[in-house]
């Protein structure tokens, strides 16, 4: 039986907003799960229901074999990291880290040892006597991570912990989080809208949209084999290209590829790295924007089938207005249903 299980979990607010529409998720002990999706998709609500900060309108949450759906947050034994740190402003860093331990049976000596250990692990020992507001965001969030871990909870919950930091601090803290999670082996639920964060941190990514789970899988499953068009577009930077196609007699226009699908319209998905410049290729486009990104470039093209993005080596630049021919890797073309966007092949 899984360590954490969400069963048909639902949240409907009094104003009628249906934030989470009956989701199922099973998490194994020690797993790092990232809930990924755009704002308003229900990921934070789900996390807060697991924490006990929001009451589920329907469904069950099981933690370590017990039903915790109706338990208060204090009875669930979880640790949480908030987007805006939520450190106690009037307490020193040391007092903040000690705070969760005040309510345990630990002796004073043991508490001090725990705080010193976690501070050392997070590299904040030199900040212990300071106050939160004197510190930059990155340090505050380190302390917040420590406060959520120091009690050694059963579950570590994080609500966009890196959202307010700039890219340098973000990358640094990502490593800290990953290292701490591995070291403590604590089961983790992490919410973000940043697909790159999800890809690099997660054992499994849970893609959410409009209150439902679109797909749950390892980073490479979600990236290479998306279950629907939403996931295909949301994961990846930039997301998967979509080309409206038409199947007639087992051949799909406009790429001219053989497909095992009945006649009718279809949406084709191709990742930017599976498009290649080829003057003899089946597609043609006009350069809108050539984005140089150092290790590679993204070429944005206007084609008769819509806007496409191609990922290229950094090589020579293209000018806006240049015409480019394209071909696709047939092995990497995915087919989706035009209506609900579900994956066909």
């Amino acid at each position: 039986m899984s360590f954490l299980a969400l069963e048909r979990l639902e949240k409907r607010y009094p104003d009628g907003f249906h934030a989470v529409r009956g989701i199922d998720l099973a998490v194994e002990r020690g797993e790092f799960i990232v809930l990924l999706g755009p704002s308003g998709c229900g990921k934070t609500t789900t996390l807060r229901m697991v924490a006990g900060l929001e009451e589920a309108t329907a469904g069950t949450i099981r933690l370590d074999g017990g039903d915790v759906t109706r338990l208060r947050p204090s009875q669930r034994d979880v640790g949480m990291v908030f987007q805006f740190y939520a450190l106690y402003p009037h307490l020193s860093v040391r007092a903040n880290l000690l705070f969760p331990l005040e309510n345990t049976g630990l002796a004073k000596m043991q508490r001090e040892v725990r705080v010193d250990d976690i501070a050392a692990a997070l590299g904040v020992t030199h900040l212990l006597e300071r106050f939160p507001r004197q510190l930059p965001g990155g340090d505050q969030q380190r302390i917040s991570l420590g406060r959520a871990l120091v009690r050694q909870p059963r579950l570590w919950l994080m609500d966009e912990p890196l959202g307010t930091l700039d890219s340098d601090r973000r990358e640094e803290l990502r490593e800290v989080i990953r290292a701490q999670q591995l070291q403590h082996g604590v089961t983790t639920l992490y919410v973000t809208h940043d697909q790159e964060e999800a890809m690099t941190l997660a054992d499994r990514i849970v893609v959410m949209d409009q209150g439902v789970i679109r797909q749950a899988g390892t980073p490479s499953e979600v990236y290479e084999s998306p279950a629907d068009l939403f996931t295909a577009a949301f994961v990846g930077s930039p997301g998967m290209n979509r080309i409206d196609g038409l199947v007639t007699g087992g051949v799909c226009a406009p790429l001219g590829l053989p497909v095992a699908l009945p006649d009718g319209p279809v949406v084709l998905g191709v990742r930017p790295e599976y498009l290649h410049p080829d003057d003899a290729g089946p597609l043609r486009g006009v350069v809108v924007m050539d984005e140089y990104l150092g290790a590679w470039r993204n070429l944005h093209l206007d084609c008769p089938c819509g806007r496409l993005v191609m990922r290229l080596p950094p090589g020579a630049a293209h000018r806006p207005g240049d015409a480019v021919g394209l071909r696709v890797d047939p092995a990497h073309v995915l087919c989706f249903a035009p209506g609900d966007g579900r994956r066909l092949a």
Binding site: P219, Y223, S237, E273, G294, A295
Partner: peptide, 28 residues
């Protein structure tokens, strides 16, 4: 050395792979 300029083979000294991160189009 930029990460994209470091190849994983052809060198003289061994290195241990500590972490492989999936960045979508590439691996870090």
């Amino acid at each position: 050395i930029r990460p994209e300029d470091l190849r994983l083979a052809g060198g003289s000294a061994p290195a241990e792979v500590q972490l492989v991160e999936h960045l979508g189009a590439a691996l870090l």
